[in-house]
Design a protein around this nucleic acid. Sequence first.
DNA 1: ATCTCGACTGAGTACTCAGTCAGTTTCGGG
DNA 2: CCCGAAACTGACTGAGTACTCAGTCGAGAT
Lengths: 196, 196
Amino acid sequence: MKKKERILQAATYLFARKGYSDTPMHELSKMTGTAEGTIFYHFKNKQGIFLAILEDLKDTILPEFEQYRKVESENTGLDMVMETISFYLYMAKSREDLFAILHQRHPYELAVSNAECRDILEAIYNCFIDIFESAIVAGQADGSIHSAIVARKSALIVFGMVDSMVRFRMNNLYDVEALYSELIESCRRMLQSEPC
Amino acid sequence: MKKKERILQAATYLFARKGYSDTPMHELSKMTGTAEGTIFYHFKNKQGIFLAILEDLKDTILPEFEQYRKVESENTGLDMVMETISFYLYMAKSREDLFAILHQRHPYELAVSNAECRDILEAIYNCFIDIFESAIVAGQADGSIHSAIVARKSALIVFGMVDSMVRFRMNNLYDVEALYSELIESCRRMLQSEPC
DNA sequence: ATCTCGACTGAGTACTCAGTCAGTTTCGGG
DNA sequence: CCCGAAACTGACTGAGTACTCAGTCGAGAT
């Protein structure tokens, strides 16, 4: 089962950098040192490789997020949101390829016709949003976060805010590191309960 | 000059929906009712069409944003930011195809090697960010926006926040309309000056 | 020693693609 | 009406594409 893993790893690398359609199979075989036939011995077709990557993505990233979630923080809900932002940005950097794939059109297009793909994407996004949401709910309970906001919706907005930083970095648009502290402070002002 | 325009329009439609690599020329010719040769009579190659779309995008969207900017608002800077968010979301909806192209990997990849592409993207993003920035600066001057924030950085964050809503809609992830009022309020809390 | 079987190979297949080109049509000015 | 140029055509090319398949290989079971 060595070559199968190598193929999956190389495919993740290439799909992330060049996109699905712009990655020919022969490049995949060249990179892994396997014959093209071997790839089709392990996977039904090119799309099968992509689905395997998504499954792998779900099976490696989600447990890490769940693990993170279990580490009970003694901080306020507000601070938990900030920590989650840091953790998300950290993960997006260390698992660069996987997040790059999530920022391409291909998975979402595939999701329209492929239920498995749709389910995986849903699981991934739910995991992301749920963590932010539960931190916000905790914050509303402990008084650190404004009570008037709708937790789920604000979770989506915070997630979008952070994820757009990932997009900025991916497309070489802006220096995200330089924005980090402003991002954290913006988010804090956005969520914190009225100071008066 | 009728067919050239038709080709450009169809290419914008197809590139936005299927992506650059997944749009074959014969589909472009079928859609416009022109021979494939005609396309290459008007454009040097496929990439030439893409660059023409980007130029067109710059020449149609930026003037609309500049026009919007000139309409002097009598509101506070903070309200101007909110209006700009609405305007951006409105534009992203009415010019769906053009914004879809900006949310694909292709232009950014091309920008690495093609200076013209790089310049166009820079002009577009600068325009977006500048509008937010000047509204924030105005808000800091009139006291409606917190004085401690860095206008440019916050402009980037607000832009990222709004643009991520566009991404949500494009990828069928979440219902952006339902998030609108929460987005506006979040942004207001994020920017407004201390109530005390 | 022989058989079995899963992993692997790479030349081959049928097809698609961007781009070309020799030729035809359209059109405006003389 | 004619002429030249511009616009347009679609059959064609050759490079590439995903995928196939007949067959090799080596390790373990009989």
